[in-house]
């Protein structure tokens, strides 16, 4: 084995690198969903939004030559889906979970429909920042080649946490999410707040989708998302509606997802299906260990359908 290879040490490094690479879509979608759920609504349609974002981001990047314009377009497409969800759900007696699943189907369908001409061409990708310039080791350099969107996500998570706790907007959002009656009594326009929250959630999910098509793996195809959107929605509940915990949960999930291929590349090939399911098992295990029957989930918005 030549000098600049790490062999077995490559596994933790690969898991770290994978955590950074794979986690970004989870991070954006879960942060977006976090905002939406804080307002007391759940949008299961983010899977569709993610795929739509991936497609529109790639298409715009290809047509305009600017990947950042693509990210913006993806965000806007996501926001439109968010507004659609919010509009339909603001009607009386409409179930937000069902509308979410319908929008998921619609979003995926529309993305595939419009995305056909963009499967073949290659669009410019987002830049990465080489934080590993100091290392001689190619592997370390690769692991630390961090995508710009990930960094935005890293900044966004603590900012959202701070904003939820310390700003007027955050307070209104939480009030609407915890008790619609209280919000009404205080004179807040519940539907408008939820519309805003769902639209920003959709925007972030769209951006998360553009990461898939514009950064990693970096091209548009119909099999691009393997349920990242819907898993991220689950991660929000796992993270107890805390943006920082969303960040850690996404990292954990991404790292676990990188474990399977990393182990195989150093020669452990037994039971790869089970390794591939590691992220899901790990998440479930942590949930089992940290939940308790006597305590409702701390931080759960009171108006949220799934937690009642």
């Amino acid at each position: 084995m030549s000098g600049d290879l790490l062999g077995w040490w490559g596994v933790p490094l690969a898991v770290l690198a994978g955590a950074i690479r794979v986690s970004t879509p989870f991070l954006f979608v879960s942060l977006g969903e976090c905002i939406t759920e804080k307002s007391g609504r759940i949008n299961l349609g983010l899977e569709g939004t993610l795929v739509m974002g991936a497609m529109s981001g790639y298409a715009v990047s290809y047509l305009s030559g600017s990947p950042w314009l693509g990210v913006l377009a993806a965000g806007c497409a996501g926001a439109v889906f968010g507004i659609l969800h919010a509009l339909i759900c603001s009607l009386p007696r409409v179930n937000d979970i069902a509308v979410g699943i319908a929008l998921m189907l619609f979003g995926i369908g529309l993305a595939f429909f419009l995305g056909k001409p963009f499967i073949q061409p290659q669009a410019p990708n987002l830049p990465s920042i080489p934080f590993g310039w100091w290392s001689e080791n190619a592997q370390v350099r690769d692991a630390l080649r961090v995508n710009a969107l990930f960094i935005i996500g890293v900044i966004l998570a603590p900012f959202l946490l701070w904003a939820f706790r310390n700003t007027r907007w955050g307070l209104i959002l939480r009030t609407v999410g915890d008790s619609a009656d209280a919000a009404l009594a205080l004179g807040y326009a519940i539907n408008r707040v939820r519309m805003f929250a769902t639209a920003s959630g959709g925007f972030l999910a769209g951006v998360g989708g553009s990461f898939l098509s514009l950064s990693y793996p970096g091209s548009w195809s119909e099999g691009l998302s393997s349920g990242q959107g819907i898993t991220a929605v689950a991660l929000v509940i796992f993270a107890r509606w805390n943006p920082m915990l969303c960040f850690w949960a996404s990292l954990l999930f991404g790292g676990a997802a990188a474990l399977g291929p990393a182990l195989q590349s150093v020669g452990i090939t037994q039971g790869y299906y089970l390794f591939n399911a590691a992220p899901y098992m790990l998440t479930l295990l942590i949930m089992i260990l940290t939940c308790s029957r006597d305590r409702t989930l701390a931080g759960a918005p009171g108006e949220l359908g799934v937690t009642r």
């Binding site: 690969a14 690198a17 793996p217 091209s219 691009l224």
Partner: peptide, 18 residues
């Protein structure tokens, strides 16, 4: 047969092993 993210991850893993 078709798992783009896993395939990309596998390619990176292989490259990292030389």
């Amino acid at each position: 047969w078709s798992m783009p993210v896993k395939e990309a991850e596998a390619t990176n893993g292989l490259i990292n092993q030389g």
